[in-house]
């Protein structure tokens, strides 16, 4: 039974990684850049929700909505100020460095406002743990909500990208920016929309993560950010189902590694599995190999 409960915890943590990884992978797919500030958007979402709930005493549902809106706006601001001017830059590394700059910026703004002491986050899920098999298997309510949210987001996002005009515009832009522009697609608007969706998802992920692991500091976002990036690459970066599978697998490996092998080496195990996967399949689990033209 303990294995089952570890597995469910792993899937729950993995669902959070998957939601963050979706943001990574969408931005990468469309703008071909690694958005290192993504992890810090999670942290900002956490702080917004916490302030709304603790200091303003609003309903958790409203707090979540405000956090999502705030992160969405933040995502659009980041895109406009720090990334759009560099779209035609000679080196792709330029954008990577501004992303790091944005990451430092967000961390330090939050540090100035809230200080470096960890704040304890109150869970937004309060309907009580599930008792199964006569009480021998307890599933926390946060895990249930996290997994369900992840599945819903996954389904809605797939439908959005496949069926709506805006979603198809995203696919077109990620395939070929020039051709998309010729077809009358607003390329900059589409990229901004991708950032907005990714950042909104980051807010959701942040609140879910903090509901299960309730310690919030200005640096809370960076490690889940890196792990989600790993998850995105694991599943094949640019692929949405890949991000989902990569995230879940990563979470399960991390929790099982922590439980059965060594709690200090859990991160090392996660990264080692990633290396093995990439060496066997260099484009990730579901990534498409791009044919090189000579």
């Amino acid at each position: 039974m303990s294995f089952l409960s570890y597995l469910i915890n792993g899937i729950s943590l993995g669902s959070v990684y998957a939601i963050i990884a979706l943001g990574y992978t969408m931005v990468y797919g469309i703008a071909k850049m690694l958005n290192f500030a993504h992890g810090d958007v999670i942290m900002v979402g956490g702080y917004v929700a916490l302030t709304m709930m603790l200091n303003l005493n609003v309903n958790p549902v409203i707090a979540i909505l405000v956090a999502i809106v705030a992160c969405t706006v933040l995502g659009i601001c980041i895109e406009t100020i720090a990334y759009r001017p560099l779209l035609g830059a000679a080196s792709p590394l330029a954008v990577l460095i501004t992303a790091i700059g944005v990451s430092y910026f967000l961390q330090n703004v939050v540090l100035l406002i809230f200080g470096s002491n960890p704040k304890s986050f109150q869970s937004v899920v309060t309907f009580g743990d599930l008792q199964l098999a006569g009480g021998s298997l307890v599933i926390s309510d946060e895990a249930v909500v996290t997994i369900l949210t992840c599945v819903i987001i996954m389904v809605v996002l797939t439908l959005f990208i496949g069926k709506t005009k805006a979603g198809q515009a995203m696919q077109a832009v990620s395939e070929d920016k020039g051709a998309a522009r010729l077809m009358g697609i607003n390329v900059n608007g589409t990229i901004a929309l991708t950032f907005a969706i990714g950042s909104g998802l980051a807010a959701v992920a942040g609140i879910l993560l903090l509901s299960s692991y309730p310690s919030l500091t200005p640096y809370t976002g960076s490690m889940p950010g890196i792990k989600a990036f790993v998850a995105a690459v694991f599943g094949g970066i640019g692929s949405i189902p890949g991000a989902f599978i990569g995230g879940i697998l990563l979470g399960v490996i991390e929790i099982l590694g922590r439980a059965y092998i060594s709690s200090q080496l859990a991160d090392a195990i996660v990264f080692a599995v990633l290396i093995v996967v990439l060496l066997v399949k260099p484009t990730g689990l579901l990534g498409k190999a791009v044919q090189e033209k000579v």
Partner: peptide, 28 residues
């Protein structure tokens, strides 16, 4: 030897992974 078989962002992430593994292993 294994890393340089990869290219681009995949190479970047594997070097990141090795860096973290070294740090974690040295820690124990």
């Amino acid at each position: 030897i294994p890393v340089l078989r990869l290219r681009g962002d995949y190479l970047a992430i594997v070097t990141l992974a090795f860096g973290e593994i070294i740090k974690n292993v040295m820690n124990v």
